[in-house]
Design a protein around this nucleic acid. Structure first.
Lengths: 214, 214, 214, 214
DNA sequence: GATGAATGAGACTTCATTCAT
DNA sequence: TATGAATGAAGTCTCATTCAT
């Protein structure tokens, strides 16, 4: 019986945590770390500031936990995209579009992932977790690159991780520039721009001969 | 004589301004806009917070002026790089390396240029200046692309600005990822990574046939 | 039960608000709006400045709330006086004496009602409330004038509001002069002076023939 | 010769003082005591803040000196009005209208005269001077009342000073109410309102029988 | 005399965090 | 557990006054 009630309690506790995290996510996303206040979060969660301290050690941990959630959300996008059937190119494009879609669907959330977590005063465990989660993206992309080499789509002499990082980095660049409204000044279809870039990049990988570089 | 003394004073005033800007730059770079405080800046400049207000209307303007300086610095890198002789590829690479070098030399400063200045409460004149300065990079790159098309290096049907933005965006992505230490976990020569990406990208532009995309 | 505790809490909250308002009133009255500081108020209320912000949005609102209280207090004087039985003259005199008494009892408080509330940054609701409260005095006096005309005490051709404003204005003048200690230099019974003035004024209204003015 | 140069210097000094006072008057009138800053005054006078301290001991003294000037200005209005020919009523009305005109011509200046000088940290001499100047108005009015009694216009049993203070007080009341925009809400000709009041008041003095009051 | 940069105290305000209830 | 009032430190900004030049 004790166990039953304990579980019951545990569940309720988790509910409250989720509830707070949900509110925190909204506020952090909207205001950013500094401008978000525990009061606003508490207000949104319809609890009091004091209650937050029952479940979280403070603002920093709360922020980190929200980030964790967002990382998981993002990875769910990637996971889904990674399961799409098709040739290598289609799979890469699917992955890229998933990242773009996530950015579009959760604009402010995406911003949070770029935070420099080192400024927060976090316990080591959380820091590592966040770092680990941030690496997931590379894993997903790398996997496709590896498949691509197996299938002869990419030359075997190129390094998987380097290609994956290269692809991801450029994608992030587009998101970053888009975020700061750089493209707003021009009459440009953002998605098309990214697709073209990936096409050029893939094409380049396939065609580029190292000796040319000499 | 009056003129002489007036100049003398003007120079001294400029010295002080530069001195404050220097301190502000350090602090803003290290802490970011929100976390930087006038007190910290004043402390670093070995003055009082009040003294800052003799030269600047407030935190926002101070921040903006620091950004202006950094933009100018960055543009000096670009300007120098844009004057390098060589073929189109070499010129693009020279430009890219200039951006990398700037990022390396002024790591934290580069971050500031990404700030969303619209959140600051700036006089219109300053806002415009910053916006204008921020566009310079695109101009530099676009110019090379245009030359490249003239010389037959790039296909004539590709849009100059789109290519320039695309190139710049991917570069920014690398810088961004590097900033957040993504590459630190891997044994990767950052510069090589970027060079490879550009090579693939350029090669892709030249070789990519639109019909393939169908 | 919930209701009971909620009420309890509400009451306590009101107590605290009243406590702060009391301190604020003292300080504002003594120093005026500009010279009063939240620190002084907090000190007097034996709390910290921050605590004030739990109950009030800032200095302006605090000031406005104090004014509201004073207006209400003043209106309670007027209300009581307006219920006095007697002929028109006695009723006017009763009203005038109420104003004098209020001024005497709450010397500095009275000053605050003269504030130009438009310089404060108040929510519309508060602004309107204050404006409304400030008009009350005229209403009370006007009502007596109207009765006076009905009873034939005043000539029917005189405008109610003009007479009321005229009476009130002169009263305010006496208060104002008294405030600045003008009468202190002379050996004068302030109340008698005002009574005489009102007597002359009333007598004048009754006797004055417009044609004389030609 | 020394004397000549000394005088020259003295004159120049006075010029500067006047120049500063002029600027100070403008700023104090516009902003009020607290909101006026020495910098604004210095700016308007096209000198530096430091220079002000050569001629004045500080902000308070500067304010007081400005008030002195305004008192003198006001008294010049009264002086001129007091010299008007006509019967007693006309002379009183002339005096009243002069006060109204002064208030109209120098709206903000008039406000300053109402300041509670005791909050300023002034040397005794200045305080007394200000007090003395503030009494002038009563003198002017009293003189007419006295003449009025001599001529049989007013009953001989009424006290001169009391009548003068009474008249002046009510006038001040109208100005005060007008200042705070009380009349703005009503469609009222301010000057007419005041004239009527004075007429009633004078009429009342002449007609009012003390025994009625019993 | 005059300058004006600099000070230093103090203004209002915000907020993460604590703690008595 | 939960409350929410209160704290205390810190934030930006203002300004009368001083003082080296």
């Amino acid at each position: 019986m004790t166990t039953f009630f304990a579980k019951q309690k545990e569940t309720e506790r988790q509910h409250r945590i989720d509830h707070i995290l949900e509110a925190a996510k909204t506020v952090f996303m909207e205001k950013g770390y500094k401008n978000a206040t525990l009061r606003k979060i508490a207000l949104k969660a319809q609890i009091t500031t004091g209650a937050i301290y029952v479940y979280f050690s403070g603002k920093d941990e709360l922020y980190a936990e929200v980030c964790k959630q967002i990382f998981h959300l993002m990875n769910s996008y990637l996971d889904k995209a990674s399961k799409v059937d098709g040739d290598i190119k289609q799979r890469i494009m699917s992955m890229a579009m998933a990242i773009l879609r996530f950015e579009k669907d959760h604009h402010d959330a995406a911003d949070m992932l770029a935070a420099n977590f080192s400024i927060l005063n976090l316990p080591d465990k959380l820091s590592e977790e966040l770092s680990e989660l941030g690496s997931q993206t590379t894993y997903y992309i790398t996997r496709i690159i590896i498949d691509g080499k197996k299938e002869g789509f990419f030359p075997p002499d190129k390094d998987d991780v380097r290609l994956a990082l290269s692809l991801w980095s450029s994608l992030e660049g587009f998101l970053y520039m888009n975020d700061y409204g750089i493209f707003d000044k021009y009459d440009i279809d953002f998605e098309e721009l990214v697709k073209d870039h990936i096409n050029y990049f893939i094409c380049g990988i396939q065609q580029y001969k190292e000796e040319e570089n000499a």
